[in-house]
Amino acid sequence: MKRKLTEGEKLRRAQILARKINLLLDAIVDQGGRPYDYPAIEAAAEKTGYFISRTRWSMLKNGQLQVVPDACLCAIATVLGVDPEYLLREDAKLPPQVEVMLPQVRIKRLYEVRDFATKALGRLDPEGLRAITTILDQAVQRRIDAARFSGRVAGTRQQDEGPSYASPKLDGRRVALRGRVLPAQHARATTQAARHGLSLSEYLAALIDRDSGLPTRLDQGPEAPTPRASS
């Protein structure tokens, strides 16, 4: 007879599943290069024959206890382009398309922690904020260096020279870039971005990351779903 799980074990499973789903959402985008929000998940899951309610989806992402049918997990796996075993088994191997994006996901999450610290401590404790952001900036740089020199580019590290970087004002979680290019350059960029299913800003971000030796969607064939372009 199969042993009945304790409430603690059920909660642990729910939290592990939430971490897996959130990692997939960080690393995977839809055919148009957009992050998967609930409406996109709902619509794509319905095409597989399964309806995922907004309440269930929220509980899944937040690791809340609920009875989750295998059919629901299989629908999510199909939508996000991974093997259902990844969601169904705790020790399942990380999907290749997610593994290749891990450096960027880790960097993104460090920036999110930095943004949170800035909002929480900006006016209350400027000195504490400076100490925290210094540590986080160093961690981000280590992640960038590790991604840049982890076998994807030459192993000899070259020191970057130039003025120190000052964090700009953010538009949401991103930096707005403004500039002028020639019409022919705009046409070429628009065409290339469309080939990869990216917006112009996503295409530019991918070019920046590729120049730094980071993996991007530009290095992969047009598949759906595909790894998320760099933010």
Rank of each mutant, 00 (worst) to 15 (best):
R106L: 07
I107M: 10
I107R: 04
I107S: 03
I107L: 07
R109H: 11
R114M: 14
D115S: 13
D115L: 15
D115A: 12
F116P: 01
A117W: 07
A117D: 06
A120C: 08
L121C: 05
L121A: 09
G122Q: 07
G122S: 09
L124C: 12
P126C: 05
P126S: 05
A131M: 08
T133Y: 03
T134Y: 13
I135Q: 14
I135C: 13
Q138W: 08
V140H: 00
V140T: 05
Q141A: 10
A147R: 03
A147V: 03
R148C: 11
F149C: 05
S150D: 15
G151I: 02
G151C: 03
G151A: 02
R152G: 01
R152I: 00
G155Y: 12
T156W: 14
G162T: 02
S164P: 14
S164V: 11
Y165E: 11
Y165M: 08
A166F: 11
G172E: 02
R174N: 00
A176M: 14
R178W: 06
P183M: 01
A184S: 10
Q185K: 10
R188S: 13
A193N: 01
A194R: 06
R195S: 10
R195Q: 10
H196L: 08
G197T: 00
L198H: 02
L198W: 00
L198G: 01
S199N: 03
L200Y: 12
S201E: 07
Y203A: 00
L204M: 12
L204S: 04
